[in-house]
Amino acid sequence: MLLSANPLEGLEQQIVFGIASGSIYASLALALVLIYRAMEAINFAQGEMATFSTFIAWMLMTTFQWSFWITFPLVVVLSFVGGVALERVVIRPVERAPILTMILVTLGLFSIFNGLSGLIWGYTIRTFPSPFPVSPISLGGVAIGFQDLGLIGVSLLLLFLIYLFFSRTKLGLMMRASALYPQSSRLLGVRVGWMLALGWGLSAAVGAVSGMMVAPVLSLDPNLMQSVLLFAFTAAVLGGIENPFGAVIGGIVVGVLLALVGTYVPHAEDLRLVFGFIVIVLVLLFRPAGLVGRAHVTRV
């Protein structure tokens, strides 16, 4: 199971584990948030799309012997293009449909991508090479693997890039405006449909990064991202489903909590999924906007 905690290690060590696995949830949560901001719906296929991207990376690296550093950017770009195409072909016809239709469509995509991965690459568990060295470094008595540092660094970098894109670029502004004010944006000449497609592309690209970070840790099979998706969803809800910062903070909080639960609660392995659901329900009940939420401005 996911970065299982070792109860023999100390508290600090568990926290480091927690932050690292939390970064994984955070990166997929970022992908969920990108879609949610664009169309106010959860993409339940996000994890399976990421797994599919990861398999493509695996194929390029094993069958064609490409290096990780060539494969990685190529798969990110391919996933972006795939996400855009998916929106144009599958989502566009239901763009104005009720939210339930949208959810069913993404659930459909879930089984399609899961099935495709199994069909093409099979259900054997594969090892996925890690881009980071295995040897840990020691910081004040706590051993931190480069793997963990890499996960944390990549998630923070993703967050930073997403922040820059939405706050500093014209395209980011157009995407935000299209999501919030489609009619006003159309009147200004913005092709709102394409902005949504772009949102899907970005989110598929972020998901691909997430998958390629997870696979070395969990080993690759068609169900790679399923538990990750649940905790990513927990993280996104916890942080505020529209807020990229919230998603990252939520991811790390969920990661640390899971590590602590794993250490101090007996039979915790079986309780992890339950724990995720409990957090979701509690947040939705008591703080639906999430811990960080989104700053809605209104005149009082």
Binding site: L173, R176, S185, L188
Partner: peptide
């Protein structure tokens, strides 16, 4: 300029102006 102004209320004043020029 539609009836009801079409203000993009969560965006800043400057961002509203930039959206006008976005193309």
């Amino acid at each position: 300029v539609p009836e009801g102004r079409g203000t993009m209320s969560q965006l800043s004043v400057l961002e509203n102006l930039q959206m006008g020029a976005c193309l």
